[in-house]
Nucleic acid binder design. Structure first.
Length: 872
RNA sequence: GCGGGCGUGGUGGAAUGGUAGACACACCGGACUUAAAAUCCGGAGGGGGUAUCCCCGUGCGGGUUCAAGUCCCGCCGCCCGCACCA
């Protein structure tokens, strides 16, 4: 019979409407079934979805639909990370309001997402730019402020003097603002901070429990938190006229090398530096030079180690009569440790570079295991490995770790300025999270500055603090600050004049708790704790690895802060995390060297050689490297065009096939064609099966012949393995299993012309289950087939097929026979055949006898039901 | 520099220490067709015998084991993250 081609363009919108009308994917907070929360990182509403979104959401949807089929109450919501800079830039360029631009983009992207057929609960949609979201964020802020989790302090920032705003490090390129091109200045600004560093230890130790996270991400967070154990050590200053200070405190993780110390170095931002610079023009100039370098990391990396001698000396803390010069050095960071270090050039590369430049002594105090104490010397490379301490009086002969402890004890017992000279301390690299942004399009910080009452939070009854609509972006800087009236208020405490805080929050705050808001998106409080606790933590979170540190760390902190303020009662927001790879595509270049879009070329192949030429001009095009899809390289493929041409199911299927989900996937036309062909193949199989069944209606479900039983086994095995693979997020393997099952079913249908009724029944049941296996991945096709097969209800509501354990075991097994580890043959034996019997069979094999050549085997290894290895 | 990951056919990739290359893409051959598309069947790691057999083969070199892509040691290459963190 001939079957009409499956037409996704017609069927996909139809099923989307059916799901919509039935509210198939709306989750109820009162549902008694086991809850399962799957979440994909919500998008920034840039205006269009890209293939990365398609991949991300296709994966999440498979998980969501699978767990629904497993009878769980699945929460699978979607929202918009809707505040941020691009909206303001668009406002400047197009003279539209950021809100208008953002809301238009949301509408457009929502249409696109809907066309993908995702099983999303749209009744819970949230957009962080709407007051009904951010008012609750303001309430959280006020609670956290009251709980002492927020502080206001001065901090050094990258300041763009033209745009009049703070820039993140990555927005500073070669010391210049990425937009304005103006040289970036370092400024001290008073900023609001979340005290994330208070949670450094907890955030670090909590990582050990996150066993369903990629090891890579946990490692990255560990490094970011950067715990180090060391000693705070006081150095006594020799009396000097230039300062009243009597000591300098340094932090060192290597107090074992104290006898190798040859100088002290202060940060340019150390308060003693500032004091000394007041009367020292050379030092003032040096500090200014350091500041001009900015904080951009690549600049700092290349900078030469430089310093200025302060004229001060400190006493060596152990060696009687010895002194060390005090420098200000450009490589000493103020916000780590104490902003001062002692330099031990022999065992630290930076100190060595510095010592060589200023001719300071280099005395080795750690001897390499194979080193000779009399001759060992450090040249251009500091020795930082393990060894034995020497040249160090009472530390001589100790290991590094023992010497650290000895030194710590020694200094703890002595005192300087009435304090212990040394104190063991744990330091973290993690700094407090500065959230102040001089921006309009963000969540207003709910604080007022009153002349009488000081800086105080807005009263909760006065929330939300709403962004004014009538803003102008004509002037650079913060449009909120420029607004003529908005910031002027009366203090709710004293009634006197006050001004609103005009800084808004970092958009990372918005995304640090949206997962909690989804559990009760219309609640009058930020969360309904009982509801949030029932859903959270998110069982499976899926997104890009680019958020491995900031977003995920902030969310982990925020969850703890919400616990401290009574909004949730959990520590970790995301139980399972999965980071998917990027979508890549070939690049194309014209003879002139310009990038050319894939839609503007024609590919040709002769044999295995592929060439390309320009669609319009016909000029030859060079096929270039495979890169992440990006507008600048023009190698993007628009999801809309793919959906229009092939349907959403094809795009989804392709995204799940072939490449392991954590790795990059290359988008190819051939791959899409293949996915589309498979879709048609399934549709044809269903059509053929219906035709076969129609000829011979059977209800017999037993007495299978061998063929029928074999087919049933294949089906049960596939159901089991696809389930295992989806649960393990190995979508590419699940797809491969489905291909195998389909091939088996197609073969079976092909030879089923005069088959007995039981075999047709096995085929029918197999096809039915195939459709269920496909349903999480190609849901529209699955619904169409389900309906065609005459099944009642939606496949989206059907429970996952049961697996009969008896169908997973075989009663006979194929044993490969190896001779000396190389396969020489195989035998088929009943399962559980005793080893002795197997041995007889093996030795009687002609091929084995030939290999033995009449000699007795040295040894026969028999792994029951697995393999036989004959050693000769 | 530190940390993590990876290296398997023409390609993407499979493989609890147990038959390496599942599945797919591309390719080649055949069937159907006036022809093409679509579809179906078949082939295929390399080399040799060209039958039903043998040798080599998972970046390179060693090792453990009856058996190694997988475990251990040492190299090489690529990718990612972090980095003046004392």
């Amino acid at each position: 019979m001939s079957v009409e081609r499956y037409n996704p363009r017609e069927m996909e919108p139809r099923w989307q409407k059916v799901w919509d009308d039935a509210q198939s994917f709306a989750a109820s907070n009162d549902d008694p079934r086991e809850p399962y929360y799957v979440l994909e990182m919500f998008p920034y509403p840039s205006g269009r979805i890209h293939m990365g979104h398609v991949r991300n959401y296709a994966m999440g949807d498979v998980v969501a639909r699978y767990h629904r089929a497993r009878g769980k109450n699945v929460l699978h919501p979607m929202g918009w990370d809707a505040f941020g800079l691009p909206a303001e830039n668009a406002a400047i360029e197009r003279k539209t309001h950021p809100g208008t631009w953002t809301r238009q983009n949301i509408a457009a992207m929502k249409t696109q997402l809907k066309s993908m057929g995702l099983s999303l609960d749209w009744t819970r949609e949230i957009a962080t730019c709407e007051p009904d979201y951010y008012q609750h964020q303001q309430a959280l802020f006020i609670d956290m402020l009251a709980a002492g989790l927020i502080t206001r302090k001065k901090s050094k920032v990258n300041w763009d003097p033209v745009d009049m705003t703070v820039l993140a490090n990555e927005q500073v390129i070669d010391g210049k603002g990425w937009r304005s091109g103006a040289p970036v200045e370092q400024r001290e600004l008073t900023q609001w901070f979340f005290k994330i560093s208070d949670y450094a230890e907890e955030l670090l130790s909590g990582l050990d429990g996150l066993t369903d996270w990629p090891e890579k991400v946990r490692t990255m967070q560990r490094n970011w938190i950067g715990k180090s154990e060391g000693l705070r050590l006081l150095f006594e200053l020799l009396p000097a006229q230039t300062t009243a200070a009597t000591s300098i405190e340094v932090f060192s993780t290597r107090p074992d090398t104290i006898f190798g110390a040859s100088f002290l170095a202060l940060s340019p931002d150390h308060k003693l530096t500032s004091e000394l610079a007041a009367n020292n023009p050379a030092l003032t100039e040096f500090v200014a030079e350091c500041h001009r370098l900015g904080t951009a990391t690549e600049v700092l990396e290349k900078a030469e180690k430089k310093g200025v001698f302060t004229g001060l000396y400190v006493k060596h803390p152990v060696i009687e009569g010895a002194t060390l010069p005090v420098y200000v050095a450009n490589f000493v960071l103020m916000d780590y440790g104490t902003g001062a270090v002692f330099g031990c050039p022999a065992h630290d590369q930076r100190d060595l570079d510095f010592a060589r430049k200023y001719d300071l002594p280099v005395l080795p105090v750690v001897l390499p295991p194979d080193g000779d104490a009399a001759s060992f010397a450090v040249a251009d490379e500091a020795f930082t490995d393990a060894g034995t301490i020497y040249n160090s009086q009472f530390l001589d002969g100790l290991s590094i770790d023992d010497a650290k402890r000895q030194a710590a004890d020694y200094f703890a017992a002595r005192s300087v300025d009435g304090k212990p000279q040394g104190k063991v301390e744990i330091n973290y690299r993690l700094r407090d999270w500065g959230i102040s942004r001089q921006r309009y399009w963000g969540c207003p910080i709910p604080v007022i500055h009153c002349e009488v009452c000081g800086t105080i939070p807005v009263a909760k009854k006065d929330l939300p603090v709403v962004l004014p609509e009538d803003v102008s972006f004509d002037k650079p800087g913060n449009a909120l600050d420029h607004h003529p009236t908005w910031k002027h208020v009366n203090c709710h405490q004293c009634g006197g004049p006050a001004t609103r805080e005009t800084d808004t929050m970092d958009t990372f705050v918005d995304s640090s708790w949206y997962f909690a808001r989804f559990t009760a998106p219309q609640a009058p409080t930020p969360t309904i704790p009982a509801v949030a606790n029932a859903w959270l933590p998110v069982d499976q979170y899926i997104g890009g690895v680019e958020h491995a540190i900031l977003h995920l760390l902030y969310s982990r902190f925020f969850t703890r802060a919400m616990k401290a303020t009574g909004h949730v009662n959990i520590d970790e927001p995301f139980k399972g995390l999965f980071t998917q790879g990027m979508v890549t595509h070939e690049t194309y270049k014209s003879p002139k060297g310009d990038w050319v879009a894939p839609t503007d070329i024609v590919l040709e192949s002769q044999g295995e050689v592929r060439t390309a030429r320009h669609l319009q001009s016909g000029e030859p095009i060079t096929i270039g490297s495979i890169e992440k899809m990006s507008k600048s390289k023009k190698n993007v493929v628009d999801p809309d065009e793919i959906v229009a041409a092939y349907g959403a199911d094809t795009a989804r299927w392709f995204m799940l096939s072939d490449s392991p989900p954590e790795r990059d996937i290359q988008w190819t036309e051939a791959g899409v064609e293949g996915a589309s062909r498979f879709q048609q193949r399934v549709w044809r199989l269903v059509g053929e099966t219906i035709a076969l069944i129609g000829q011979s209606k059977s209800t017999v479900r037993e007495n299978d012949d061998a063929e029928g039983l074999a087919l049933r086994k294949i089906v049960h095995r596939a159901v089991q393995q696809v389930a295992d693979d989806i649960e393990g997020l190995r979508f590419n393997r699940a797809v491969a299993q489905i291909y195998e099952l389909t091939n088996a079913l197609v073969r079976s249908a092909g030879i089923a012309g005069a088959a007995p009724a039981t075999r047709l029944d096995a085929l029918e049941q197999g096809v039915e289950r195939l459709i269920q296996l496909i349903a999480p991945m190609m849901p529209h096709l699955a619904e169409t087939c389900w309906e065609a097969l005459g099944k009642t209800g939606l496949v989206a509501d059907a429970l996952w097929p049961e697996v009969d354990p008896a169908m997973l075991v075989d009663d006979s097994v194929t044993l490969p026979i190896q001779v000396n580890g190389k396969r020489r043959g195989e035998i088929v034996v009943p399962k559980g055949t005793p080893s002795a019997e197997v041995e007889q069979l093996v030795l009687s094999l002609e091929a084995i006898a030939r290999m033995l050549d009449g000699k007795p085997p040295k040894k026969i290894v028999i792994v029951p039901d697995r393999i036989v290895n004959v050693v000769v």
